[in-house]
């Protein structure tokens, strides 16, 4: 491969666990740095993607309007978009709120719960509004690859990225496929 591949990452409605797991590739990060360069990512603190990124890794599902904007920017900027982890792939644990109507969730959290003082639904325009349901990212943008796991193990990231960097079609062997 000519230059280094540009990789960006982001976390939507996730727990950052996938990012932590990514860092578990430990010393292989040095080898990775030989072939890849990090663009927008909570790991680099770069806030927006540069023009064209090769690979975008997305952790977390969509629970609010801001998640949707971020995801769309990612899709726009990344040649290859990857859904990373259970939350990005099926909504994950945040989606367990899906069978409770949003109205009840908000009432329970901000109005009716014991110990709530000055009950009111937050209405600051800076705060992103919640979607009725938490959605996995493939329901809103086209997704090219999926890395399952909660979180996917460091080996999954390593295998996937090295496959791609070497120009091979990424594939995960049986041992690396996990939904938990």
């Amino acid at each position: 491969m000519a230059g280094k591949i540009k990789v960006a990452t982001t976390s939507l409605a996730g727990c950052f666990g996938c990012h932590m797991s990514f860092l578990d590739i430990d010393e292989r990060i040095l080898a990775l740095a030989e072939i890849a360069e990090f663009d927008r990512s909570p790991l680099t603190d770069i806030k927006h993607c540069s023009d064209q990124v090769d690979i975008g890794l997305v952790e977390g599902g969509l629970c609010n309007a801001e998640n949707v904007h971020t995801l769309r920017e990612f899709r726009e900027s990344c040649k290859i978009l990857v859904a990373v982890g259970a939350c990005a792939i099926n909504g994950g644990l945040p989606a367990m709120r899906n069978h409770i109507p949003l109205q009840e969730c908000l009432e329970e959290s901000y109005l009716d719960a014991v110990g709530v003082e000055n009950p009111q639904i937050p209405n600051d325009v800076e705060l992103p509004l919640l979607l009725n349901k938490v959605h996995p990212i493939h329901e809103v943008v086209k997704v090219d690859y999926f890395l399952p796991g909660c979180p996917p193990s460091a080996d999954v990231f390593w295998k996937f990225l090295t496959d791609l960097a070497s120009g091979a079609e990424p594939s995960l062997p049986y041992e690396l496929v996990h939904y938990d």
Binding site: A65, V68, P101, L102, Q103, L106, I121, P122, N123, V125, P128, L129, L130, L131, N132, K133, H135, E139, V140
Partner: peptide, 25 residues
């Protein structure tokens, strides 16, 4: 998307009383 994205914010809009630009998709 196969679902109404802006419609999915309706409940939150109503409950927070917001209708600003950020309250839509």
């Amino acid at each position: 998307p196969g679902f109404d994205l802006d419609g999915a914010l309706e409940v939150a809009r109503r409950m927070s009383g917001r209708d600003d630009a950020h309250a839509h998709l």
